[in-house]
């Protein structure tokens, strides 16, 4: 009786409708349509016909396509690894320094360190190209000034160093984001814990590693997953600095630039939308796998403390 009299929760529809509508129109439908497009032949005799998984097989195994895909994936992993090893630890270190009481002018440092994040990638790319420019860049003169002029290389132009250099430029730009997230988490830790630890005779080092770090572990997870998603979607910096052909010799090619080049074409190369969406679907699957790992492996294991 009671259940039959329970009114239909109309308000739920009202509150859900805007989000459902917008997500359906701008996310779910394009995603499904991309999936459909990736099952269609892109060039040659099969153009426009349903080809099943053929595009995926071509992309992953064809001697012409697969080196580009695996190369881009390898570059992307390196790009991610550099962010994880450089951006996030330094972001944490900066957050700890800004959280401590020894430093004067913390608000100024915080703003300055966060500022590059708000700049356009195009500007960042342009400025760093000027700094590192072999003809008029100040990098070589600064190195020369301290007697290390022989260390200067045209880093952005060499196959071995172009991608690490771009990664470090990106690290420089986005270091403010992990720093802010870590700082917020650190600020949320009550002072009592710090004081109690000090009373018990713990130094700064062990206070951090035994008390604070376990408390901010959930934030470490969030920063990791944000870095992962951001890095595997990365495209703009490489496009701004090296163009869609991601030279030299594809050494800076990320999945994003591979997608752009394939989908829209480049110079005399015509675009191949079905193959492009195939790349896009694989990017989606990679990111999905990473996020699912975060949700089901990390989030279930990590302990969140109520403070």
């Amino acid at each position: 009786m009671r259940s039959s009299r329970k009114p239909f929760p109309t308000h739920l529809i009202v509150f859900l409708a805007p989000a459902v509508l917008i997500y359906t129109i701008f996310m779910i439908w394009p995603l499904l349509d991309s999936l459909r497009l990736s099952f269609i032949g892109g060039s040659g005799a099969q153009a426009g016909q349903f080809v099943g998984l053929q595009n995926y097989i071509t992309l992953l195994t064809d001697p012409q396509w697969s080196p580009r895909f695996w190369g881009a994936l390898r570059n992307n992993l390196l790009f991610f690894a550099i962010h994880m090893c450089v951006q996030n630890p330094i972001g944490l270190l900066l957050a700890v320094l800004l959280n401590g009481r020894v430093l004067r002018g913390r608000a100024v440092y915080r703003t300055v360190l966060f500022a590059p994040t708000m700049l356009s990638v195009v500007i960042v790319g342009f400025v760093w190209q000027l700094i590192l420019n072999p003809l008029w860049g100040i990098a070589s003169s600064i190195l020369g000034f301290v007697g290390l002029g022989s260390l200067y290389q045209p880093w952005l132009g060499l196959e071995s160093t172009a991608l690490p250099t771009l990664s470090l430029i990106s690290v420089w730009q986005f270091i403010g984001i992990p720093m802010m997230l870590f700082l917020t988490a650190l600020l949320a830790i009550p002072d009592e814990l710090d004081e109690a630890a000090r009373v018990d005779g713990a130094g700064a080092w062990s206070t951090f590693w035994r008390i604070k770090f376990p408390l901010i572990l959930p934030t470490v997870g969030i920063v990791t997953v944000l870095t992962f998603v951001g890095n595997f979607n990365a495209f703009d910096l490489v496009y701004a600095v090296k163009g869609a052909i991601a030279g030299p010799n594809f050494s800076t090619d990320l999945l994003g630039t591979l997608f752009y080049r394939t989908f829209f074409g480049f110079q005399l190369q015509p675009g191949n939308p079905p193959m492009g969406t195939t790349v896009a679907m694989l990017i989606f699957l990679i990111i999905l796998a990473g996020v699912l790992m975060y949700l089901f492996v990390w989030q279930r294991r990590v302990l969140t403390y109520e403070l």
């Binding site: 190209q129 420019n133 072999p134 003809l135 070589s140 132009g157």
Partner: peptide, 12 residues
């Protein structure tokens, strides 16, 4: 070619 030509762009 100019020194560091590997990183010299067209406008440079």
């Amino acid at each position: 070619l100019p020194s560091g030509y590997e990183a010299v762009k067209y406008p440079d």
